[in-house]
Nucleic acid binder design. Sequence first.
RNA 1: UGGUCUAUGGUGUAACUGGCAACACGUCUGAUUUUGGUUCAGAAGAGUCUAGGUUCGAGCCCUAGUAGACCAACCA
Length: 678
Amino acid sequence: MKESTESLNFIEHIIEEDLAAGFPKEKLRFRFPPEPNGYLHIGHAASICLNFGLGEKYQAPVNLRFDDTNPSKEEQEYVDAIKRDIAWLGFRWANECYASDYFDQLHAWAVQLIKDDKAYIDQQTSEQIAAQKGTPTTPGTASPYRDRPVQESLELFERMKNGEFPAGSYVLRAKIDMASPNMHMRDPILYRIINAHHHRTGSKWCIYPMYDWAHGESDYIEQVSHSLCTLEFKAHRELYDWYLDQILDPNKLRPKQREFARRNLSYTVMSKRKLLELVQKKVVAGWDDPRMPTISGLRRRGYTPTSIRKFSDLAGIAKRDNVTDVSLLEFCIREDLNQTATRVMGVLNPVKLVITNYPEGKSEILHLENNPEEANSGTHEVPFSRELYIEREDFKEDGGKNYFRLSLGNEVRLKSAYIIKAESVVKDSFGEIQEIHCTYDPESRSGSGTEASERKVKGTLHWVSIAHAIKAEVREYDRLFLDEAPDSHEEKGFLEFVNPNSLNVIQEAYLEPFLANATLEDKYQFQRLGYFTLDPDSKDGKLIFNKTVGLKDTWAKQNNQNQAQNQPKAATPTPAQPQKKAINEIQQIGKKLTNLSGEKLETAMNSIREFAEEISYEELEPLFGTAVKKTGTRIAAMLALGVLLKKGQEKNAGIDTFIQSGREDENEILKAEAEKLN
RNA sequence: UGGUCUAUGGUGUAACUGGCAACACGUCUGAUUUUGGUUCAGAAGAGUCUAGGUUCGAGCCCUAGUAGACCAACCA
């Protein structure tokens, strides 16, 4: 159970308020309403976790409802994928519903609307209707068919339903208000003719309800109490309510729509249309490509339901535009996998290491802890022998003092095995290292309890025995886009930011033999490298592992920083930061002034004086009116004024008043500066 | 240019009916460590878009700006 001190998001506040106002808790009901026209993504996870999370929190039913009102875009494949993803996330829906289940009811209500003279049949082209709609700033004009007699509309609607007309020839429109400032209220379309096979109703219908008509009424039919959707539907709310008003039985629950901001993730895109484009243009291998932000992509990549739910929880729900840093998602998966993943060893970029004093032909079985984070996780066996692979990056002939890995003459621990010392290298004619020759300390075997085994050495390396290693393909992934928000550029399409190196395939990695029995469900930590999971492309005899996410790597970070520092200054492109105006700088610095003291204060005041050299009196004058409590800004203004006066600015009434007010202020600094100018 | 919504450290969210701006990620130290992981201890970083106002007191209320988002599909 959650603690009562936990902070609530604004949706939860609304529900708590409703409850406090007397809404019965047992009538709470939610729904998640996807359109089956694409796969679910991490943005949907926000909505799924919100709705189903609310259901769990209040013990309320949550329906899964497919908004399947447009047969030309929707497919059974998507229905199946969506159900699979939600179930995988660990949520259980109360009912599996379809808007198409309500087509008969919706149609009956539409007929009633016509009879009530609240709807009419229009027979203009979509262009004509669009033109009459007006713009957000100018009112629309009425359709010439707006006052068609009720009986005539009724007959035409019936004939539409019977398939007597071609697609696009007639529509049913609500009769609301062509002058409404809300475009959605300008006689919106309720029904249109579509001749396409529907994944559930087949060819029964050739007229299909529009989203607004179907959605709110579906909520009503299911007696959903809180209909939560994303912000772009805010403007639809008025129509949602209008439709409800037409059919509402006052004895029944009236659903209410509330809107929250959709969740964006940095370095990716989050719209089904764009994701579909990536699939269709073969930028990625499919909806479940591990680089995709889809639930199925993340699953294939190795993300767990726990991590995704945790992410949704941490990211929260609010109403402002956002781009959540992907590092938060990565934190969530690392946190989960650190607790649960089995530790193994694998070498991705091998170099041969020979232990010269280890008997040829000998091998032994060592034991590797399955998970140091979990006390009873046990161990598994790993073979050791004279010839091993280690990572090429784990050896340098001369490493330097910050290099904890293997270098000539230095000792290092082989994880769960022995301490070794590098003695020499064998190179080919290009100078490339072929073999590293070392000696080992036979007394130092891990866990043997000997004094030598307890010895502290700086570094520990992972390794595999060449004779025993199994081969596997390993796929490493980088962000799919190079830009933090690839679809936020007006002049460039998101595809221009695709990262050409988002996939790196290692054809032949060497893994400890334990991994031969890996299953798709298993999660591994390749020690010192990251988390990996088996890809479904794996076949008998050919293992393929996906890298879910790397371990945090402070060493790599440190290296990158050093490299950046060593680069000549001209090569580091200074971001084209628009130069702030001097007056703004002064305001900025001034704000913080009252929090500073000593040297910092001195520095700040001096930089204000410097910036003041570049400003005009006209720019400064408005600051004289700064509220009394904003002392910092007033000090800054006083300092700047001092500079201007020194430069020959004439005193005037405004200046005198400002100086006088400063002299009378409680703040010592302000007082002192004002005195100087008096 | 009409309507609607939003604005809090680098990022994402909190802050109850006005009462010392909090948490997480990220960043940076240091300790521990047979994973340069984990864990632990700590630090820096915002005075809440701007300017007024109400108030003993404003991130929160009021006014006026500014910036961004959404709205004119027979899509959802």
